[in-house]
Simulated assay, not measured.
Amino acid sequence: MPKRILITGARRGIGAAIAVGLAADDTELLLHHLAAPDEIAAVAARCRAAGAKVEVLEADLSDAADVVALGERAGAADILVNNAARASDVRLDGLSLHEWQATFAVNVTAPMLLAQAFAPGMRERGWGRIVNVTSATVRLGGPSGPSYVSSKAALVGLTRSLARTLGPDGITVNAVSPGAIKTESEAELAVTRGETDVDIDAITEAAQAIPRRLVPDDLVAAVRFLISAGAGGMTGQVIEVGAGLVYR
């Protein structure tokens, strides 16, 4: 029977790569987006072409009520991939309380609420997988602002807490931690820092054991493993996909 998978932030970047990468695995995909009908339609078309059943769901993950409504509209899900994130490059001196709270709302509160929505059904079936997408900035600091780094660290804590809570019910909760992945969001942040793609490639590759700029497709194998039956004995773990990133 096909596994039903909700992937948040599926319109581009890592979320789109995960969706397309899992589409051929006998799946029913629920693809979340916010105000990007053309982009999500293109991703949905690629997933359908690969053989998946696809439903598109729109929600504002910064709004707790909308997140709860998303869980209700989605119905049951066997697998939850919390990929959506609010990227924030605001440094401490300019950081407002609104920016801090908005970043935590998307990056921590929304994953918690969605786990809360789907855990009862997973418990009833005796099987479930939750994968949270965190960041190597938790380990390294990096150029992102404190609200982003702190929220991703909190997501690691949530991962480990949920793993302990849900493990007895046959539900595993793990995280993947991307390093310097070449995405649209990364490119947009680079512009605010006055960097070019050439700058970022050179800086990143010099800081990695594998001198190749990673792309979203590099994350797919780790996610596929964590949601597989073979990963049933693994929970509360963080897999870093960063080409041996040391410092940036």
Rank of each mutant, 00 (worst) to 15 (best):
M1L: 12
P2C: 02
K3Q: 12
R4T: 14
I5V: 14
R12K: 10
I14T: 02
I18A: 07
I18K: 01
D25W: 00
E28Y: 13
E28K: 03
L29T: 03
L30S: 00
L30I: 10
H32A: 00
H33P: 01
L34T: 01
P37K: 09
E39C: 03
I40G: 02
I40T: 01
A41Y: 01
A41K: 10
A41I: 02
A42Y: 03
V43S: 07
V43L: 06
A45S: 05
A45T: 06
R46L: 10
C47Q: 01
C47L: 03
A49Y: 01
G51Y: 02
G51R: 01
G51Q: 00
L57F: 13
E58G: 06
A59S: 13
L61E: 04
D63G: 04
L70R: 13
E72G: 15
E72F: 06
E72A: 14
R73Q: 08
G75Q: 09
G75V: 10
A77Q: 07
I79M: 13
I79F: 12
L80W: 11
V81K: 09
A84P: 04
A85Y: 15
R86P: 13
D89W: 14
V90A: 05
R91I: 06
L92T: 14
G94I: 12
S96F: 02
S96I: 11
H98C: 03
E99T: 13
E99N: 14
W100A: 10
A102I: 00
A102R: 11
T103C: 05
A105D: 06
V108N: 08
P111Y: 06
A115N: 03
Q116W: 14
P120H: 10
G121K: 04
R123Y: 12
R123W: 07
G128W: 09
I130N: 09
N132W: 01
T134K: 05
T134A: 10
T137K: 00
R139Q: 09
G142D: 09
S144F: 14
S147M: 05
S147A: 15
Y148Q: 04
S150F: 02
S151N: 11
K152G: 04
A154S: 12
L155H: 05
L155F: 11
R160H: 07
S161E: 11
S161M: 07
L166W: 04
G167F: 12
D169M: 03
G170L: 06
I171T: 05
T172P: 10
V173F: 12
N174Q: 10
A175F: 12
P178C: 08
P178A: 08
G179F: 13
I181A: 03
K182Y: 00
T183C: 08
L189R: 14
A190V: 09
A190S: 15
T196V: 11
D197N: 03
D197P: 07
D199K: 05
D201I: 09
E205C: 15
A207E: 10
I210G: 01
R212D: 15
R213F: 10
L214G: 12
L214Y: 02
V215E: 15
V215G: 05
D218F: 04
A222H: 09
F225L: 09
F225V: 06
L226Y: 03
A229E: 15
G230M: 14
A231T: 11
G232M: 07
Q237A: 11
Q237R: 12
V238A: 13
I239V: 13
V241P: 11
G242R: 02
G242M: 02
G244V: 08
V246A: 15
Y247K: 07
R248D: 08
